[in-house]
């Protein structure tokens, strides 16, 4: 098991940045260092610095790309408890998710798939029931 050797990859993530504005939230000043900090505090313990997870923790580098391909998939990402209940406001959470899309889902800062704070705001309050079933359905559908 080489999950730990993957930990050595994390310094590279410091380098990933935006450079310019992201999506439609012009007013919000995106800071990749802040997003990284939030990722480290609230996500990294389970999803690991490279997003690949371990044991039963899902590999974000596999699933994120697939999920953002659909509206339902994007909603699912926002609704998972670790995201919806993250101690971040909507703008911070959008920033974090977008940083993850760049870091783990091969997106760039001009991608249409990026999240907005408004999107986060309306979706995160909707409770997610039957998480496993929904996830399976979404990933299976995408594979088709």
């Amino acid at each position: 098991m080489n999950a730990v050797s993957k930990l050595a990859v994390w310094p590279l993530l410091f380098i990933i940045g935006y450079g310019d504005k992201v999506a439609a939230d012009d007013a919000y000043d995106y800071k990749p260092e802040r997003a990284l900090f939030h990722y480290q505090l609230f996500c990294q313990g389970c999803h690991l610095p490279d997003g690949r997870g371990a044991k039963e923790v899902p590999d974000l580098t596999e699933s994120l790309n697939k999920l953002i391909a659909s509206k339902e998939g994007k909603q699912f990402i926002i609704q998972v408890p670790g995201v919806a209940s993250a101690p971040l406001n909507d703008a911070e959470l959008a920033e974090l998710l977008n940083w993850m899309l760049v870091a783990f889902a091969s997106q760039n800062t001009n991608s249409d798939a990026l999240f907005t704070a408004d999107e986060i705001h309306s979706v995160r309050a909707i409770p997610l029931i039957d998480l496993s079933e929904k996830r399976q359905k979404l990933l299976v559908n995408i594979n088709k």
Partner: peptide, 11 residues
Amino acid sequence: TEMSPLTWIGT
């Protein structure tokens, strides 16, 4: 020993 990749985080 083996370093567990899953953990808690502090500041």
